[in-house]
Simulated assay, not measured.
Amino acid sequence: MTDSDVPHEERDAMIRASLAAHGDSGVTPRHTLFYFYGEGDHDDLNEVARRAGFLTRGQDDCTVLETTMAVDEGSFAPVSAMIQSWAAAFQLEYDGWECAVVTN
Score class of each variant (00 low, 15 high):
Glu98Gln: 10
Asp72Trp: 01
Arg51Lys: 15
Thr32Gln: 03
Leu33His: 10
Arg16Glu: 15
Ser85Leu: 06
Val48Lys: 00
Arg30Ser: 11
Ala70Arg: 15
Asp61Leu: 09
Ala87Ile: 06
Tyr94Phe: 15
Asp72Gly: 07
Tyr37Pro: 05
Arg57Val: 03
Glu9Asp: 15
Thr28Gly: 00
Asp24Ala: 00
Leu19Arg: 01
Ser4Trp: 10
Asp95Gln: 02
Asn46Ala: 14
Met69Gln: 15
Thr28Val: 11
Glu10Cys: 10
Asp24Ile: 00
Leu19Gln: 08
Ala87Tyr: 01
Glu10Pro: 02
Asn46Tyr: 03
Ser25Thr: 12
Phe76Cys: 09
Ala21Tyr: 06
Ala87His: 03
Gly58Ser: 07
Gly74Leu: 14
Val71Ile: 15
Trp97Glu: 11
Pro29Ile: 02
Ala89Lys: 12
Ala21Leu: 05
Val79Gln: 13
Gly58Phe: 01
Arg11Pro: 07
Thr2Tyr: 11
His8Ile: 09
Trp97Gly: 02
Gly38Met: 07
Gly58Met: 07
Ala70Leu: 14
Ala88Phe: 08
Leu45Asn: 02
Gly38Cys: 07
Arg57Asn: 11
Ala13Thr: 04
His31Ser: 14
Ala77Glu: 14
Asp24Pro: 00
Thr103Leu: 01
Phe54Ala: 12
Gln91Ala: 15
Asp72Lys: 04
Asp61Cys: 08
Phe34Gly: 00
His42Ala: 08
Leu65Lys: 00
Phe54Ser: 02
Ser18Leu: 03
Leu92Val: 06
Phe54Cys: 09
Phe90Arg: 01
Cys99Phe: 05
His42Trp: 00
Gly74Val: 12
Ala21Pro: 05
Ala87Pro: 01
His31Ala: 14
Ala49Trp: 07
Ala20Pro: 05
His31Met: 13
Arg57Trp: 08
Leu45Val: 08
Ala49Thr: 06
Pro7Gln: 04
Thr2Lys: 11
Thr28Leu: 02
Val27Lys: 11
Glu47Gly: 06
Thr56Gln: 06
Val48Trp: 02
Thr28Glu: 10
Gly96Arg: 01
Ala81Pro: 07
Ala81Lys: 13
Thr2Ile: 12
Phe76Gly: 04
Asp95Asn: 03
Pro7Gly: 08
Val48Glu: 14
Ala100Ile: 08
Thr32Cys: 11
Phe54Trp: 08
Val64Ala: 06
His8Ala: 13
His8Asp: 10
Ser75His: 14
Asp41Phe: 03
Gln84Asn: 12
Met69Asn: 06
Met1Trp: 08
Gly74Glu: 14
Leu19Ser: 02
Arg51Tyr: 10
Val102Phe: 05
Ala100Phe: 15
Val101Arg: 04
Ala49Cys: 12
Phe54Ile: 09
Gly74His: 14
